[in-house]
Structures are given as structure tokens and as C-alpha cells.
Design a protein around this nucleic acid. Structure first.
Lengths: 232, 232
DNA sequence: TGGCGTCTTTGCGCTGGCGCAAAAAAGGGG
DNA sequence: CCCCTTTTTTGCGCCAGCGCAAAGACGCCA
């Protein structure tokens, strides 16, 4: 385990306030795993057995409905944890996780995490904190889906992505993630057609610029307005 | 603390597998609180300081959007816990909680719960389990809001309510909860008009029977069909 | 450089669901 | 039993967003 990796671990909320000894043990117990673009770490419905931590690349968490539609829950980038649910006995993964680009993770088998948890209450407190945050985010998303129109939801998702993976350009913010209209549709609960039309309109008005699978936000301010109010 | 109350506690997943001594201590630390119909236990945005447990009546958890719209998250009945988030330092309640009918709860101040948590790892494991369940339910709800049409969502909500508070009748299941069209709209992310029209249609077809603020499910089977497939 | 697969746009038609206003129905209290 | 409040229904108009099909643009790889 390299020092950089340790630092990455340390910077994650999940491992906050752990002393060096504890962190050492956490690192000891970790396994490393690399996947090619498009490969899956696990599938929705599998018995949940591992807690994951992204080192490199991106991981896409999506839920598939009975009739094959997808709902894209989240993109997880380096330094972030996913599938904490595997801490719990007898749980199943509620989503599938797919590598976006070549990606690498650390993971801990449940037994390891559980025993670390018993040794270090701090760890378990952190974990609860994370789950609580997650709950809060989902509640917000439910509220948005229930009360906001599509345009607003798309604006919000773009802003969130910009925050998470945004790269400042001289003239705007580039969302540094190959993201198709289809993906955006799955994140906002609409169709790729509507996303396409909406982005086109924004592009015409100079709010954004979009290439195939990429978006650059030119006027963040205007986007914020759309996200918050109803009209401009 | 009466024996019934202890039994109620004991039956809750949150207190599962606690030995009698632990349960005793949990009970010791609890406070009792009674509210009249419509009164609030706390408001969205308040610093989260108490974990609650419903003894009697019902509690309605709802989130209010900036522009005054409501999203109804959940009804909590006797024997269920809410606002676990108050375990965590510096959290705020993400919803408001309102008594529906005269209601009574037990509650524990954060310090009490935290210290119990440290003494009894079982408690903290249970708590995580609960949070995980919650997360799973929210994910489902997000998926439903994203991919299903209104009619199906209403059917699902009715079924859930029937499961949670359903009362078997000779000829159907009564949802034992005063629930207005407005409430159903807030639970399904639609409007009271659409709910009204949908229920009316179902009533005409004999699927349900509805009085003011009450619904009786006459043909659960047909409702399930609507909830699962697209058409009958 | 050309061909190919994927992603995106666009035209067209359609309808589910919204919003409002007003009437009707259902309770509840005095 | 009547009045007042709240909830529910209903008619009407409307449009955001969906779905499909087909064309177009892009990027990659050989």
C-alpha cells in the first residue's frame, strides 16, 4: 500500500478520525481489484459481500427495473466508497456497479469490515454518518422527482456533476465524464429525446456547449437560475 | 414503563437481540411525549436532537419544498422508530413530523442514544440495519418515480398502506388511516385531481371503494396487476 | 481514408397528467 | 337538523414530455 493510497483513504469521510494504527489495519485488510471499461464489480441482487473504495476511474451504480429500464443512481469517483450495505449480514446489492473506463478499487470482505468495526467504534460512527448523508440525498432526489419538472431536474444534475467531476476551463466548466444523453435521462427520470432537446435549447442560448458525450457549462449562473426558480 | 411498552420496544428491529439488562437501560433513558392531532414533534431544519419511537397514534413525515409544496415521505405507526438521524452530531431533521390523531412517542436525547450505542454494539448494528433498509426503500421509490406512470405509483402506495395499516374486512381490506386525496398525491408525486380521477375509475370498476379520506380495497388482486404490469 | 457503429438530433403525432374553477358531497358541531 | 368547513368530483383547456422513425453527426479503427 503506497503512501498516496493511504492518504486517499485517510481523506475519505469513512476513515476520518481513525488513528494511524487503525488505518494501518484497514489498509492491511484491503484487497485490490481492477476492471476494464464496462466490466461489472457486482450485479444487482448478488449477495452483498464487499465494501468498495474507488482508487482510480469511475464506477456507475444503476438499478434495473423488471422490464429492463435502467435508473442511474450515481457515479462514484476516486476517493469514494460504495456498497457499504455489504457491512450488513444477508443484504443484497440493490444496484449493479460497472466500471466506466479502466477502474481500480480496494475492497473489504464483510467479515473484515465487521471486525474492524467492532475494534474501532469511530469507524462504525463514520459509516452511520455516511448512510445518513445518503438517506438525505435520496430524500432530496425523491422530492425533486415529485415536484420539479424535467428541465429543472436536468439542470440540477448537470450542476451536481460539475461539482463532482467539474474541471475549470478558461471559459466555463467541463464535466469530465463521458456522459450520454441516455445517461442523463436515466439520472433525471426522463427520456434521451427530452434531454437532447433541452440541452439543444440551452446550447442555442449559450448556456452550455455540448459535444458527443460531453458537456461544458458556459453560464453556470443561468443554469443555477433554471435549477432554482421556475423561469428566467 | 409498563410491561406492554417493554414488549413493544422489544419487538422493534432497533432493539432486537438486546439482552434484558440493555433493554432495561434503554427504557430508563426514554422520555414520554404526547401530542394532539396536527401538532408537530419537530420541524424540518431543526437541529436533530431526539430519536423517536411511536407508542400510539400515527406520525406523518413530510418534506416541504422552498415554494411550499409538500412531499409526504412516510406514515409511522406504533412500534416504529423515526428520526434515527438524530444519533449523529450536528445533523438537522430533513423532514417535519406531525401527529395524526392523538399520538404518543418515546424519545431519547442524542447523548443517551450515543452512550447506549457505545455500550451495546448490537444496538448500533441494528441501527445501521434500519438505515440500510431505509436506503433500499428510497431507492425503490426513486426508481418508481423515474420509470412508472402515475396510475401504477398510486396502486403501489395503496398496497403499501394496506400492508402497513390494513384491516381485513369480510369483503376487502380497509386502509385504517385517514388519508385524503391530497395526501396520496403527495406520496406519489402527482396532484389531488389526478388521484381523484384515478380512484374514481377504479371505484367504477369495482377495484376499490372510497369514502372521504378512506379507501377499501375490494379486489387486491386487480390492484396488484396494475402495480406490476402495465395493463390489465 | 473510408467504413462502421454509436450517439444525437429532429419532425411529427399524440396523450397523460396538470391546473383552475366551480359545483357537489360529506362530515361535524352547535 | 341545519350550517359551515373541508374534501372530492368534474368539465374544460392545455402543454410538457413521450415515442417512434429516420436522418445526421461523430469518432474510432483498420
Amino acid at each position: 500500500m503506497t503512501p498516496q493510497l493511504l492518504a486517499l483513504l485517510k481523506s475519505n469521510p469513512l476513515f476520518q478520525n481513525l488513528n494511524d494504527h487503525a488505518l494501518e489495519q484497514v489498509a492491511q485488510a484491503a484487497h485490490r481489484l481492477r476492471k476494464q471499461d464496462g466490466e461489472f464489480f457486482f450485479f444487482q441482487g448478488d449477495p452483498a459481500a464487499r465494501v468498495h473504495f474507488v482508487i482510480q476511474g469511475k464506477v456507475k451504480l444503476a438499478q434495473t427495473t423488471g422490464d429492463g429500464q435502467q435508473v442511474l443512481m450515481e457515479y462514484i469517483g476516486p476517493g469514494r466508497v460504495f456498497s457499504i450495505i455489504a457491512m450488513l449480514p444477508k443484504a443484497r446489492y440493490p444496484v449493479s456497479s460497472q466500471a466506466v473506463g479502466e477502474s481500480e478499487v480496494l475492497y473489504w470482505p464483510r467479515e473484515a469490515i465487521v471486525s474492524l468495526n467492532e475494534q474501532y467504534p469511530t469507524l462504525s460512527a463514520n459509516m452511520m454518518q455516511l448512510m445518513a448523508t445518503q438517506i438525505g440525498e435520496f430524500q432530496n432526489r425523491i422530492r425533486e422527482l415529485s415536484t420539479q419538472r424535467v428541465e429543472r431536474r436536468i439542470a440540477r444534475v448537470l450542476m451536481r456533476l460539475a461539482r463532482q467531476t467539474g474541471q475549470r476551463l478558461p471559459d466555463g466548466v467541463l464535466i469530465d465524464l463521458a456522459i450520454s444523453r441516455q445517461d442523463l435521462a436515466e439520472m433525471t427520470g426522463t427520456t434521451l429525446f427530452t434531454v437532447s432537446r433541452t440541452l439543444k435549447r440551452w446550447e442555442t442560448n449559450g448556456l452550455i456547449e455540448s459535444r458527443r458525450e460531453h458537456v461544458i457549462i458556459r453560464q453556470p449562473h443561468s443554469l443555477v437560475k433554471i435549477a432554482e426558480e421556475s423561469e428566467d
